[in-house]
Write a protein that binds this DNA or RNA. Structure first.
Lengths: 158, 158
DNA sequence: GGCCTGACTATGGATTACACAAGTCAGGTT
DNA sequence: AACCTGACTTGTGTAATCCATAGTCAGGCC
């Protein structure tokens, strides 16, 4: 047997049946599981907030950016907040909601994996401002133990 | 100013320019950034190894599964290993490479976020086999500090 | 009133992802 | 030799995603 997670209960005995929307991961992918949405989130984490910044920095057309941003707002990942610069009218900027901030492990996880396993083309250094050590994305438990792959127990719930 | 990561160096002063393949995250997305690939990885983490299991449990057609599995093998995320069951000929099963195992934080991160922020439709309980506490995906540094969003420093490198 | 800028909207076409159905192929079983 | 099974391949159609270009719209500024 190869290393894997421990799957229990109805999930373990389901046979060769697709989970569809019963899997939280599939629902996540429906909301943010496309290139543009994830790159928009990268730029928001990097500090961009305005529509013009976002579509230019992601390298996508305005139409696509507008569509994806609307979806992200509808999904509760981003919200539009009014702002104004001196001598300008009131506009709206896109900021992360608490749910959006909770996506940081996913975004940084994708970044870190690519930096390690797809290094050709230029990378990034991710460090902890406090101590300068490298930033990692780790799996652990609420009691602060490191959790290895074989120690993860997954069971259907709800 | 809103909360964000600290972006430094060339990355901070790039203006409204797209990063393209210079960003490790974009390279990651090119390799595994589609629904089918990520769901195949979910099933492999759940313990499935055989082609028939994989396409049926992911809920995708054989053609798509074959295509994505080939890409995952070419990307170095999965590898094919020979196996045989009694009274059967030798076949191949798909197992995670070390690079594939390193995707666990991403897969579990997507699962955890959906369980928390898209709970309608049924969820999963993820617990630590050792202590029963809930499994989380956390951002921290090599010196074991928790790293909050504003403490992450990102700079171009390579 | 007319100009300008940031934030979109609209239209058309290319590419990618996926579905459905059917066929191939290797090799072990009978 | 005929059959079966797991692992694919082939062929065709649809939908989602994306690109390129152009147009709209609101409101501050001149």
């Amino acid at each position: 047997m190869h290393m894997a997670v421990q799957v229990e209960g109805a999930l373990a005995s389901r046979g060769d049946v697709a989970l569809g929307d019963r899997c939280p991961m599939e629902r996540t992918l429906k909301m943010i599981g496309n290139r543009t949405a994830l790159l928009l989130l990268r730029e928001v984490f990097y500090g961009a907030t305005r529509f013009d910044q976002l579509w230019k920095r992601v390298g996508v057309t305005e139409a696509v950016a507008a569509q994806r941003l609307r979806e992200l707002v509808n999904s509760g990942v981003l919200e539009k907040q009014p702002y104004r610069e001196p001598g300008q009218r009131t506009r709206h900027e896109y900021v992360l909601t608490p749910a959006g901030h909770d996506l940081m492990p996913v975004v940084l996880g994708l970044l870190r994996w690519g930096a390690t396993h797809a290094p050709d083309g230029g990378g990034v250094a991710m460090t902890h401002a406090g101590c300068g050590a490298e930033v990692q994305v780790a799996v652990r438990c609420a009691a602060d133990h490191d959790v290895s792959e074989s120690e993860v127990v997954i069971a259907a719930a709800g």
